[in-house]
Design a protein around this nucleic acid. Structure first.
Lengths: 186, 186
DNA sequence: AACTCAATGTAGCACATGCTACAAGGCGGC
DNA sequence: GCCGCCTTGTAGCATGTGCTACATTGAGTT
């Protein structure tokens, strides 16, 4: 196997860990290089350009997020909307998944500004998330299950987005109300 | 009255219009100056620094948004959650309010990245929005009215955030489901 | 040992950014 | 008419950015 590919994969892993921990705000080539202990020159040796680097690294992070989610709540079991919402809201706030949710929020935001290459990746994650929720909802009607999954996603993501605002109060109140609302339709 | 203040106010108006139309992604001093037909030098003559400029301009935009919202749905009338949600969702998608919602999404996103001075302004808007919704909800219990208002806000903002993703499908499905859900508790 | 070529370092370019120093214009009061 | 000062233009600095040219190293092959 090629040593080149190994080296590049190694860089990808370290970059993904660094970006996951540090966020998307400090992603200049020099900052990334300093963060993982190499040089910007090296990054551009192993990646065509910054766009390709980010695409690959964010892809890895997205993949890891999906793995984490699935590990925490394996496929097979199905839940009523209220129960699944509670589980996912709790998960999203957990120490393990919080960094992923934060990055996800940043990416969705960047996508809203039409920054590349965030839009494409955010799109893929959204669809993956939709599928993940959908396949864990105990709702027989296909269309309703789809719609309910989307509702949960908007609530989770919207909550995550507004979390840093107003000290998290709006977010907390909405979660509580949503929970109550979902329980009325058991 | 001082001519200086007039000049500055004039700049503020033009800057606000420009930023409202163009978004927050092109807000370097040179870009702003070119956009409204002046020089970066002038901007820094009338504003202490870029932070103050953005603060004032975004404040103006936020103010205009509140005015627009209130004009569209004056205080006095109160609505059941489902009705208010429908009205606001429709409003948020209208040609008049859409630019404001887009800017608001960008600001919330920027605030999530802890970029200054967005955080403080986004905070103020959130609270203003909470008050706006709360005072139009026909719910007698104070705590419940607060929580329901927050829920609607998270749904509206979350929907706006996810609107550009997956062709707006997730957003649309969530809106539909939420509507149905709210109607069950008339 | 000599050679080759991938891997890495050093230096720098061209550009954008926020901001500033300095000077020139122009409009007021005397 | 002349002076003074508010306003505006020109030029530039320091820094950060993505990216590149060139030189050097060093390990593997013959």
């Amino acid at each position: 196997m090629g040593k080149h590919e190994d080296q590049r994969a190694e860089l990808e892993v370290r970059l993904a860990a660094w970006v996951l921990a540090q966020g998307l705000s400090k992603t200049s080539l020099r900052q990334l290089a300093a963060g993982i202990g190499t040089s910007d020159r090296m990054l551009l040796y192993y990646f065509r350009d910054k766009a390709e680097l980010l695409e690959v690294v964010l892809g890895r992070i997205a993949e890891a997020m999906t793995l984490s989610l699935t590990a925490a709540l394996p496929l097979g079991q199905q839940f009523a909307p209220a129960a699944l919402y509670a589980r996912v809201a709790e998960l999203a706030a957990s120490a393990e998944l919080r960094p992923y949710m934060d990055r996800w929020g940043e990416m969705a935001a960047a996508a809203a500004r039409a920054e590349q290459p965030f839009a494409a990746i955010a799109d893929a994650i959204t669809q993956g998330f939709q599928f993940w929720v959908e396949s864990r909802l105990a709702i027989s009607d296909d269309a309703v299950r789809r719609d309910m999954a989307s509702l949960l996603i908007v609530m989770i993501d919207g909550g995550a987005l507004l979390e840093p605002l107003d000290g998290g109060r709006v977010s907390a109140r909405a979660r509580k109300m949503m929970q109550a609302l979902l329980e009325t339709i058991q």
